[in-house]
Every structure is written in C-alpha cells, then in structure tokens.
C-alpha cells in the first residue's frame, strides 16, 4: 500500500500543452505513471506524449475515468483549474503552480472542504510513490522503494534528503510535498495520519520550516496519536524575523512561527530533530 495515490491511479494533467506541463508529463510517463489524459481549454483533440487532450475536465473524465488531477497552469488561471477539477468530481487535486494570491487560496480551501475534495499545495512538488507513480515534479531518479514516509514543505531540500536516504539504502514508502505557501490544502497532520495508518510505512521524516503553525499542530498530533517514529528538520533557525525567506509562507511574524518554537514542540513530542539536515540519515540509521 501507499498513501493518497498508487500505480492504478488514473492521472489527468491540467495545463498539459504548456512548457512545464508537457515536460513533466514526459517525466511522469517515463516513471510509468498512469496518465490517462490532459486538459487545456481550446486545445481539445490534440495529443501530448500519446495522451489525448480535452477542452475541459468533465469530458476528460467521461472519456478516460481520470480520478486525480495535477495542475501545471499559470497562477492567474490555476484557481479556475482547481475549481473545475473539484466541480467535475476529482477528489484529489495536486497543484504545482506557484504564486497564487492568498485570498483566492483561502476561498479554494473553504470550498473544497465543503464539497469533499482534497488539495495538495499549491506551490508544491507533488507526490511520488517509489515503484508505482510520480504525480508532480519530484525527480524519480533519486528515490528508492522502502518503508520511510517523507513529508515536506520545501522541494529541493526534500530531494536532497531523499537522495541521501536512498544512497544509504533507506527507501521510501511515499513522498509528499505539501508546499511552502501560507494557505495549504493539506497539512502535516493530514499526511502524518495517513502514514500512521499505512502498513508500508514504519518511519516518518518531516521537513518543516519557519512560518505558520503546521509543525506545532504536527507535534501535538504526534504526541497524542502517533506510534511510529518521526525524525524531523526545521529550516530557518538562523532566519531574521519579519523577512520572507523565499516561500510566501516562510516568515516569522510577531515572534510566532520560529524554528526554535517548532523544534521544542517536536522534541517534546518525542520527535528526533536534526540540527542540520544531513544528520537525518545518521539519526535514522542509529535507530535501526
């Protein structure tokens, strides 16, 4: 088993004819991801990497039975793409797009909760299940099948850690990038709960950063509900207050959301927190 997606998941790519969408569709297909169709309004009838393009999500689902959508649409159209997928009945929407205005993300999150669709992201690298499928932009060349669940706010940091895990024979069950925006469709707690219930995961790596309180909420969940060991790293211990560190969400405001406060909460919940990220591998190896 895996969490969220698996090798039979029927994937729809919104924005498949764009530069990013086209390139990453090729990458996902190379990993044998079951991509069944793409959507770009006005481009229905074309083919990309041998997959049919439809004008809208509804007709794509009708023709192909797609059940998960991944979005590579520019920020000014991405919100519309999310609503379209949700209204057409897609229950898992993965939005790679960076730069969506925050207010619109609040509306999206509210709406999706009401109709029961889950959003991953936005501004996230997506989900990868080693040996089964890659939905998003996580480079599959670095992954290895195994028992470690990985959940991260950031992309490149996550790849670096996953690469090191693989190099030391520590394979992964599922890798989930939840994104670095202030408003996230899916939080650490949601993913931790799935890993806790996943028979194929026996250890979790959590990669957080400054800003927001998702890591604090994760610590509370771990403390009360989690039986599997968690190893974590929080980026931004040395970041100055009040300055946005790249990600829209990575900012310490009014003294809240500091790395120190998150590290303390996680440590208190029994999580082993690495001082710097290359220690993660050592910590896991010691525990085995």
């Amino acid at each position: 088993m895996s969490i969220l997606v698996h090798k039979l998941t029927r994937v729809l790519v919104q924005g498949i004819t764009g530069r990013e969408g086209r390139f990453h569709t090729g990458q996902m297909l190379e990993y044998n991801t079951n991509i069944v169709a793409g959507v770009t309004p006005g481009r229905g009838g074309e083919w990309v990497h041998g997959k049919p393009v439809f004008d809208n999500v509804e007709s794509a689902i009708e023709a192909t039975g797609a059940d998960v959508s991944v979005i590579f649409v520019p920020p000014s159209y991405a919100v519309d793409a999310i609503y379209e997928a949700a209204d057409a009945g897609i229950k898992l929407i993965i939005c790679i797009t960076e730069g969506i205005p925050v207010f619109e993300m609040m509306q999206v999150r509210y709406y999706l909760k009401q109709i029961g669709s889950r959003l991953i992201g936005s501004n996230c690298p997506g989900i990868l299940v080693p040996g089964q499928c890659s939905i998003g932009i996580i480079p599959w060349q670095i992954v290895q099948k195994g028992k470690i669940g990985v959940v991260s706010k950031s992309g490149a940091l996550c790849y670096d850690v996953v690469n090191a895990l693989s190099a030391h024979g520590l394979g992964q069950s599922t890798i989930v990038g939840i994104g670095g925006d202030p408003i996230l469709g899916t939080n650490f707690v949601d993913v931790l709960e799935m890993f806790e219930n996943d028979a194929d995961t026996d250890h979790v790596v959590l990669l957080g950063e400054i800003g927001g309180s998702e890591e604090i909420e994760a610590a509370a969940y771990i403390k009360h509900y989690m039986t599997k060991p968690v190893t974590a790293f929080i980026a931004g211990k040395s970041a100055p207050q009040g300055t946005r560190m790249g990600h829209a969400g990575a900012i310490i405001e009014g003294g809240r959301g500091t790395a120190q406060e998150k590290i303390e909460a996680l440590s208190d919940a029994g999580v082993r927190v690495a001082d710097h990220y290359e220690q993660i591998v050592d910590i896991i190896r010691e525990s085995k």
Partner: peptide, 25 residues
C-alpha cells in the same frame, strides 16, 4: 547560492551550526 527556499534556509542553518555566518539568503 542555493536552489529552493527551504534548501537555502537549511544551508544558512548549516553555516551557523559549524560556527560561520552567512552573508545572504
């Protein structure tokens, strides 16, 4: 000089960890 906000912060943290000081993010 780093790619990705998370990795850039983590790099600054590693510099601090070993006793150095970053000039920038």
């Amino acid at each position: 000089l780093v790619n990705g906000a998370g990795l850039a912060m983590a790099t600054m943290d590693a510099i601090h960890f070993y006793g150095g000081k970053p000039a920038n993010f």
